[in-house]
Design a binder for these strands. Structure first.
Lengths: 256, 256
DNA sequence: CCACCTCACTGGTAATACCAGTTGACCATG
DNA sequence: CATGGTCAACTGGTATTACCAGTGAGGTGG
C-alpha cells in the first residue's frame, strides 16, 4: 500500500477552509458583512490571532475586503479572485468533482499548451533540449512497462521542462497553478488521460522540434497531443452530465 | 489632477512586502531557513502576530514553507508560486518595469484571448450579447471623442463581459489575475496599446460574431485584435532592450 | 435643517504565557 | 557496535489580555 504523509491541519487552516467554503458555496453572499473578529472567533471557538491569520489569507485570495474601523465584507470571487483559487473550486459542496471546473481546466490547458511548445522551440537553450529528450526517453521506458502512473508523472515533468524553456514567467506560474489543481484529481483522471499519456512519439516529436527550433511543428504536435486528452475528457463530461448518452459530442475543433 | 485613494498599509502588509522582495530578488535563496519567528519579529521591530500574518500569506502564495517544530524555509517561487504572483513581479529591484514580465503578460494574453472569444461565441446567452453590443457602442462613442483612457477602460470591460460569456471559470480567474497585473502599469501602456484600443470595428465584429454564435469568426477577429497590441508591444520591448535599433523584429506569427 | 461632535463600535498592535511538534545529542540495551 | 529510547533545547501554534486607531451613526447645538 502507498503510505502518504499525514496532513497536519492547523487551527487557522481550519478556519480558512471553513470560511472559504461558506463563501464559495454562496452561503456568504458578496456584500455581506462578516461578524466582528471578536464575535467570530468566539463563535468558531478559536483565539483572535488564528482567525486573523485566516482572514488575511482570504483577503489575499481576493475573497474578502478588510477595513479598519469598518467591517470585513465578502467579495464576489468571480470578479476579484485570481487563478490560484481554481484548485479550491474543484470539489463542490457534496465533495464530488465539479465537472464545470474540470472542463475549464482542460480548455485553458488546450489554449496554453501549443503556445508553450511554440515559444520553447523558439527560445530553448541546448541544455534544455537535452533535458527534454531525457524525459522523452523515460516516457518511452514507462510506456514499454505500461506504467500509467509513471507516464502521468513524466508527462507533467515534460511540460514542466517545456514551460521553463518557453522563458515566459506567466506560463511558468500558470502551469504551477494548473498542475496544483490537476494534482488534486490526478488519480481520478489517469484512465481518461491514458490515450494522451501513451502517445510517446508525440512527446519525442515535440522534443525534437524544439531541438530544431521548429516552432511551427512544436506547436502543432503539442496541439494534437493535448487534443487526445481534451477529446476524451469532453466525452466523459458529456457522459456524466447526461447519463444514458454513450458518446460525447462537442469536441473542440482547432479553429484555424 | 486625478487624486487617488491613499493606500493604508498595515504592519503585516509592510512585513509581507519586505520579505516578498527579499525572496523575489533572490537575496533570500530557495532552501534558506528563515530566522525563528521570535527572532525575526524582533529584527523587524513588530510583534509576533503581525509577522505571522505576513508569513501565512507568504506560505499561501507558495513562497515559503512553514513547519511546526522545524524552521520556515524559502521555496523556489518559480516552481511553487501560482499565477497570482505575476503582479508582484512587474517591478524589479530598481522600481522600473520588468520587460520580461510585460512580454510574458502580452504572450499569455494572446494565447487566451482568441479562445475566450471562441467559447463565448459558443455559449453566450442573449442577455450577454446585449451587454457586449452595449460596450461596443460605448467604445464607438469614446473613439469619436478620442478618449484613450476611456477606451482602455472600456476594452477591459469588453473582455470582462466576453470572458464571463465563455462560461469557463479558469478563464474568468486568469483574466482577473492578468487584469490586476495590467492595472498596475496601465497608464504607462496606454500609448502603446492605442492602435488596438482604437479598433472599434473589431470589438463590434466580435460582439456580432458572438451574437451569431459564429465561434470561428469570433476567434479570428479577437486574434487579430490583440495582435495589434502584441505587435506594438514587441516593437517597444525590442527598442528598449536594444537601444539604437529603430524597429522591433520577432513579431509572433500566428502559426496556423 | 445642518454642521459638528461624541461615542460605541470596528480592525490593528502589543506583550506574555504556555502548548505541541522536531531535532539532535546522549545513553541504556541488545 | 548498532539499535532504540530519553531528554532538553529548539521550532512554530494557541491563548489571553490590554490598548491603539480608524469609522460611522446618532445625538446635540447652532
Amino acid at each position: 500500500m502507498a503510505l502518504s504523509r499525514i496532513a497536519k491541519r492547523t487551527l487557522s487552516d481550519e478556519v480558512f477552509e471553513q470560511l472559504l467554503r461558506e463563501i464559495l458555496q454562496g452561503r456568504m453572499a458578496p456584500g455581506l458583512a462578516l461578524p466582528a473578529e471578536r464575535e467570530l472567533c468566539e463563535t468558531l471557538g478559536v483565539n483572535r490571532g488564528a482567525l486573523r491569520e485566516a482572514l488575511r489569507r482570504l483577503a489575499q485570495a481576493g475573497l474578502v475586503a478588510i477595513a479598519q474601523g469598518g467591517t470585513t465584507k465578502v467579495l464576489d470571487f468571480r470578479r476579484t479572485a485570481g487563478l490560484d483559487l481554481l484548485s479550491q473550486l474543484l470539489f463542490n459542496e457534496t465533495g464530488s468533482i465539479d465537472l464545470q471546473v474540470v472542463r475549464s481546466l482542460i480548455e485553458i490547458r488546450a489554449a496554453l499548451a501549443p503556445d508553450i511548445a511554440r515559444l520553447c522551440a523558439r527560445r530553448a537553450e541546448p541544455a534544455l533540449v537535452v533535458e527534454l529528450l531525457d524525459v522523452a526517453s523515460r516516457i518511452d521506458a514507462a510506456l514499454a512497462a505500461d506504467d500509467l502512473p509513471a507516464l502521468q508523472e513524466l508527462s507533467l515533468d515534460f511540460w514542466d521542462v517545456l514551460v521553463r524553456g518557453s522563458d515566459n514567467i506567466a506560463y511558468v506560474l500558470a502551469f504551477n497553478t494548473l498542475r496544483a489543481t490537476y494534482d488534486t484529481v490526478r488519480v481520478a483522471l489517469v484512465q481518461v488521460m491514458a490515450d494522451e499519456l501513451r502517445d510517446a512519439p508525440a512527446y519525442r516529436a515535440i522534443a525534437e522540434a524544439v531541438g530544431r527550433h521548429d516552432d511551427v511543428s512544436a506547436r502543432h504536435v503539442a496541439s494534437a497531443l493535448v487534443e487526445h486528452g481534451t477529446h476524451r475528457m469532453f466525452g466523459l463530461i458529456a457522459l456524466l452530465d447526461r447519463p444514458g448518452t454513450t458518446s460525447g459530442d462537442d469536441p473542440p475543433k482547432d479553429a484555424s
